[in-house]
Design a protein around this nucleic acid. Sequence first.
DNA 1: CGAGATTCATGTGAAGTATACCTTTAGGCTTAA
DNA 2: AAGCCTAAAGGTATACTTCACATGAATCTCGTA
Length: 402
Amino acid sequence: MVEKNLNKFFESFLQKEPLFINKKSLQSNYTPNNVPHRKEQIDLVAGILAPALRSDKPSNIFIYGKTGTGKSLTVTHVCENLNQIAEKNKIPVKFIFLNCKLKRVADTEYRLIAQLIRELGQDVPATGLPTEEIYKIFVNIVEKMDQLLIIVLDEIDQLVKKIGDELLYNLTRLNAELKESQISIIGISNDLLFTDQLDPRVKSSLSEEEIVFPPYNALQLQSILRQRAKLAFKNETLAEGVIEKCAAYAAREHGDARRALELLRVAGEIAERKNLTVIAISHIDEAEDKIERDRILDITTTQPKQFKLALYSMLTVCEKNNHKIFTGEVYESYRDNCARCAVQPLTQRRLSDIIAEFDMLGIINAKTISKGRYGRTREISLAIPLSLVPKVKTLLQESLNL
DNA sequence: CGAGATTCATGTGAAGTATACCTTTAGGCTTAA
DNA sequence: AAGCCTAAAGGTATACTTCACATGAATCTCGTA
């Protein structure tokens, strides 16, 4: 019986007219053929990278701008074009794109270099080698390739905040050891004040050129959305005002185009699931909820065990007394929870660091306050909507066998 | 009453430890001449 | 004797612990008005 229903479901799914023609064009990793409203920046980047075509080392570039202002997009766009020309004319240039934020992929010096090597097609152990050795391997490979290497490091501000700027110093100095090849670095940062924290030496060599990406305004967002929507949807799938609303929502969030596109895509998916042929304005509100929800669920469920336990404890304590909570309370609850699922509890010192990491992830808000005579602590409050707390809690519970 | 000293609970930095993994090396075993 | 395999030795990165000191405003203390 069940099978039959399922069959029917799939049958009708196939017969259903899809809302999307090409969903890809709304996904965040999509690079359109032209990048609107970024002409100036594209020209700048292109101008700086152009010497690569004559096998001269382009200047290092530093790019700032809030999330979703088209930084990564612009860089990939320019790089792809340059790559095509380079290939056509047999000019040896290679790009590597790397996001430094990815946990356990590129969040330490060693891992970042190791990842670069992997991108170049050689495998290296995840641990065990001296960091210096990793550098040597990297230099060797690059040298053997005998070509210009352009490394794009997305969100380096996150990485530097965590492990310091020595890495960047080492990277910029690598050119001194290279005879046949050269390396250029393009650093992308969401934090506009980022370079202030850098060692002056690093700063001067890394930001030979600086480009600032201003946020899109609502009108620009609208035109971007229209352009992509034309590719993604069939005609007349969008109700009046949908684009405008998406743009307005995103403009409110410092002109984040990525968010605008995501809103539109998710709104489309919602409408499709409801068997509707038109995307209505109300779907955008639903989409906003869903995106936030998915983001939080994704972050919380992919954490390592101890992090999950810590988070679970914070949620529990927060729920019990819905005012601000403190590190000590969390640690107590955490220890209980560890006992319940037979996990060796970490020290409070470590938990303190874990709490700080959740703060960075935006799952909680924590600030250190002094309660005078009653000591100093972190004041923690949840940054996830209350409606989501039970759901997150049950998910954590399941995965922890609590 | 007010200036300074005290106090608390925990933040935070540095150094040490455990673990998992790496390469190197020495020894033992096998094999072929 | 040469070649191959294995296990021990010696090394590293990372996650965590231990130790020790730093913080900073509410509270306490005590001299003074």
